[in-house]
Amino acid sequence: MAIDGRAGAAPREAGFDDLVTQAAAAPVQGWDFSWLEGRASEQRPSWGYARLLGQRMAQADTALDVQTGGGEVLASVPRLARRTAAVESWPPNIARAAALLRPRGVAVVAADGDRGLPFADATFDLVVSRHPVATCWPDIARVLRPGGSYLSQQVGPASVAELTEFFLGPQPARVRHRRDPAAARAAARASGLDVVDLRAETLHTEFRDVGAVIYFLRMVIWIVPGFTVDRYRERLVDLHRQIRDIGPFTARATRFLIEARRTR
């Protein structure tokens, strides 16, 4: 997830019902957070995943984007690998990714990339993934050619935990410590990959109206599992008043970059 929020102004003067209606009607296909412009913002990691992706793609012969979403990130790359494929499992995203990527020669495959990849061994010299739900490290290693690399920006532990706990209360340590970069490194190594880069950052995030929170929770469904406006209406009203009276709701997002290589 990358909230930008550079344009426009947050509609803090709008009433609760209007903000709910706007957020409930906003489309959530793909992985495009442009609806949040002016309403929410998230600091970007310093390493610049899109730039790194473009560099690696320009050097690759065959590449795979795992859990491509609506294909928006892959489509932003100026020069794709000679042969590029993308996998996605959610039907609305598959259609969106196909419309965006197939004109550029990308094969879009319906598959659940966090459980396995429907490709032969040693098919790709580059595999990439931005914010995967889960990483199937054994299959990543299997489909990479010797010398090939996996590059991924992932959500780290306790990301936006302040928002989760506003609705669900304090979370146990085992929940807060999920998606630990050290665990990703261990899993990569256990699958026979050498980790050549691992970086983590904590990033400032803010939501400027309750509609932005509703939209975000509709898109990023694991932050508050089972979220609906009706179920959490009382807390949403409280949040609306807090933002109106005090200012934006702030949270800390965590991200890590991992690059691993198959050496044999």
Rank of each mutant, 00 (worst) to 15 (best):
A190N: 08
D17Q: 13
V220W: 06
M57E: 08
E13P: 08
Y49P: 08
P27M: 01
P103R: 12
L236Y: 04
P11Y: 08
T123K: 03
L53K: 04
V155Y: 04
L64M: 09
D197N: 04
Q153C: 04
A184G: 03
F166N: 11
T254I: 05
R115C: 11
P91I: 06
L163F: 12
L36H: 02
V73E: 08
N93W: 03
Q59D: 08
V195A: 01
D180K: 01
A107Y: 08
S159L: 13
L100S: 13
A111M: 10
E13I: 14
D65T: 08
A75Q: 04
G148L: 07
R235K: 13
E37W: 00
L163I: 15
L117R: 11
S152F: 02
G148D: 10
V196C: 11
T68C: 09
V213Q: 13
T68F: 09
R96D: 08
P118L: 14
A99Q: 14
D230C: 00
Q59I: 02
D32H: 00
S41E: 14
R130K: 15
R185K: 09
L101V: 15
A7L: 15
F119Y: 02
V210T: 12
A14V: 01
D245K: 06
R174L: 10
S76P: 06
P11L: 08
L74M: 06
